[in-house]
Structure formats: structure tokens, C-alpha cells
């Protein structure tokens, strides 16, 4: 059964019918937003059953759309958190990915600015490595990007999408070794993206992120994970009731190969490791429960089938 990421939008009235249906079909609701009279569900559903969900939600005026970024956590890396890069363009990109279902985090570097002085520190590197993909929003000059990119990407193991002022071809030429994705003509600017061509650029960034993530999904499919991250999310929500008291927008953040749990590591790590998934297999058996570099959160990295020999 292949699960595909979709977004359901509909009225709040009787939306639990849809939620139940998704769960009965073996899908997972990753995020649920209730906005006044509207509900937005970001979920994974079996590919063959999308039509069925459309059918059943039609009387409720529900709408099911593909959203390839659901279930991913994206780091939007900006050289600093100064006015030069925020709120435009970094926040614009972050917000746009969020609309399409991703959980995006802004990573502002302490010393990512300038040319010669640009650097990344170990905390930033580790935080970025906890994400599925890193989107670097750099400046307008070829020469500058060429000079500082090797410093900024040092130690980063997740795929990188590089956004910069020069053309895509120019970016491809100057970055060595190549990164996974490039989007040109999106450098530093100081106004809101609202013109059609600027929104087109944001769409281009999304397309590039999607392409890179698709590639990563394919790689994961070759050696599937022992358990689906969304399933662990539901399990933890049931068995570790403390998560229900967390006020973060996404107390459990689903990633492609794991899960971020926004509970203190020291107190809850053991409890989470001992949660039984099925037939005596616990979360600790199929995954690594590690302290996250982001606050005192927990990060769960699910082991692939080749390491555990189980898929549940």
C-alpha cells in the first residue's frame, strides 16, 4: 500500500467522518488545523483510495489536493536574522512551503553574513541535519556565493537547495561539489513577493524542493523504513499523553525518516523507547531515540529494514 501526501480542506461540520475514513483506510492525519468554520487536514492516504475520500467528502464540500510536502520538515537557512534577509525573502519562502503542507523552520546563522567571514557553527550544522532538506537563501553576487558556499555547507548531510541572485546556470557552475537543487534569480530583496512573476519564483522553489524530496523518497523506498513515521506519531499521541499538553503548533513533527517529539529528552526518552508498536516490538527496537539540538526535544530516527529485518 503506497501512502501519498494530500491536503483535505472542508467545512468543520461532520469533518470527523473524513478523519475516521482516513484512519479506517490505513492513512494518517499528520496535522489538523481548525480555522473558524474550516478544517485543513494534512494527511497520508492510500493512493487507490483518494477517489473514495473525494466521493465521501463531496456532500460536505470537501476538497482533496495533492501536497507533496506533507510529512516533511524543511530548514530555511538564512545567513542571519537581520532585516537584510527577513522578512523577505526567507520568511516568504518559509510561509509558502508551509502552505503546501511542510513544517518549515527558519535557521538564522550567527555568522553566516559577509564573504570572508561567513561561517557555520556546530549547533547550526546539527540543527540543519535534523531536517529533511535545507533551503539556503543567499545573496545576489556570484563571486560571493562561490566564496562562502563551501564554508556554509560544511558538515551538512541533508540535501541542499540553493537559492541565489544569479541565474540557475551560473549557480550550477560556481558551486563545487554540486548541491541537490538550484533556484536562480531569488537573491536578497527588500519587498514582499506579491507580483505574479515573484510568486512564480516561489513556485519554482517549491518545484525544486519537491523534485529533490521525491528523489529522496525513492531512495528510502529502496530500503524501506521499519515503521512509517506517521504511525509512530499516532502511537506516541495515544501512549504518551503528556504530548497532548504541549502547546507548540506541531508537538509531533513528522519527517521523512523520523519524527521530532517536542517533549524533554531526559524525562520522556525512556518512556518513548518502551512504547510497544506491535507483537512486542518497541519503538526503541526499530529506531534511535536521540536528544535533539533544538531545545531539549527528542528526535526519533527510524532504522531501515536492512538494519532491523522487520517492517511493521
Amino acid at each position: 500500500m503506497t501512502l501519498v501526501p494530500v491536503t483535505y480542506k472542508g467545512g468543520i461540520y461532520q469533518h470527523d467522518i473524513v478523519t475516521d475514513l482516513i484512519e479506517d483506510l490505513g492513512g494518517y492525519v499528520v496535522q489538523k488545523h481548525v480555522l473558524a468554520q474550516e478544517v485543513v487536514l494534512q494527511c497520508f492516504v492510500p493512493k487507490d483510495d483518494i477517489e473514495l475520500i473525494r466521493e465521501i467528502s463531496r456532500p460536505l464540500f470537501g476538497e482533496v489536493t495533492d501536497s507533496p510536502l506533507v510529512g516533511t520538515e524543511i530548514a530555511i537557512v538564512s545567513p542571519s536574522l537581520e532585516i537584510h534577509h527577513l522578512p523577505h525573502p526567507s520568511c516568504d519562502i518559509a510561509e509558502y512551503t508551509r502552505r503546501l503542507g511542510a513544517k518549515s523552520n527558519m535557521v538564522g546563522m550567527a555568522r553566516g553574513v559577509g564573504k570572508r567571514i561567513a561561517a557555520i557553527n556546530d549547533e547550526e550544522r546539527d540543527v540543519i541535519n535534523e531536517h529533511d532538506i535545507a533551503v539556503f537563501g543567499l545573496g545576489n553576487f556570484e563571486h560571493c556565493i562561490e566564496y562562502k558556499m563551501p564554508n556554509l555547507r560544511r558538515g551538512i548531510e541533508v540535501p541542499i537547495v540553493l537559492c541565489g541572485g544569479p541565474d540557475k546556470e551560473a549557480l550550477e557552475k560556481i558551486v563545487d561539489p554540486p548541491v541537490d537543487g538550484y533556484v536562480g534569480n531569488v537573491g536578497r530583496f527588500m519587498h514582499r513577493t506579491k507580483e505574479a512573476d515573484e510568486l512564480g519564483k516561489l513556485d519554482e522553489i517549491i518545484a525544486e524542493i519537491t523534485r529533490v524530496l521525491e528523489k529522496r523518497r525513492e531512495e528510502i523506498a529502496k530500503d524501506p523504513l521499519s515503521v512509517a513515521p506517521a504511525r509512530l506519531m499516532n502511537l506516541i499521541r495515544e501512549r504518551v499523553p503528556a504530548i497532548l499538553d504541549v502547546t507548540s503548533p506541531t508537538p509531533l513533527t513528522v519527517q521523512m525518516k523520523g519524527l521530532r517529539v517536542k517533549l524533554p529528552y531526559d524525562t520522556f526518552a525512556d518512556a518513548i523507547r518502551k512504547v510497544e508498536i506491535e507483537d512486542g516490538i518497541t519503538i526503541g527496537d526499530v529506531s534511535e531515540v536521540l536528544p535533539s539540538r533544538m531545545r531539549d526535544y527528542i528526535i526519533i530516527r527510524i532504522k531501515p529494514f536492512s538494519e532491523t529485518n522487520v517492517v511493521i
Partner: peptide
């Protein structure tokens, strides 16, 4: 020297001074 960069900075200067 970089034509594209100059173009962007023209836009940035305009935006900031206008703001």
C-alpha cells in the same frame, strides 16, 4: 562588475529608500 547583482541592488536601494 556583475550586471545582475547591480540590477538587484538598484531594486533594493529603491525599495529601502522608498520604505
Amino acid at each position: 562588475e556583475e550586471k545582475k547583482g547591480a540590477e538587484y541592488y538598484r531594486q533594493i536601494a529603491n525599495d529601502v529608500l522608498l520604505d
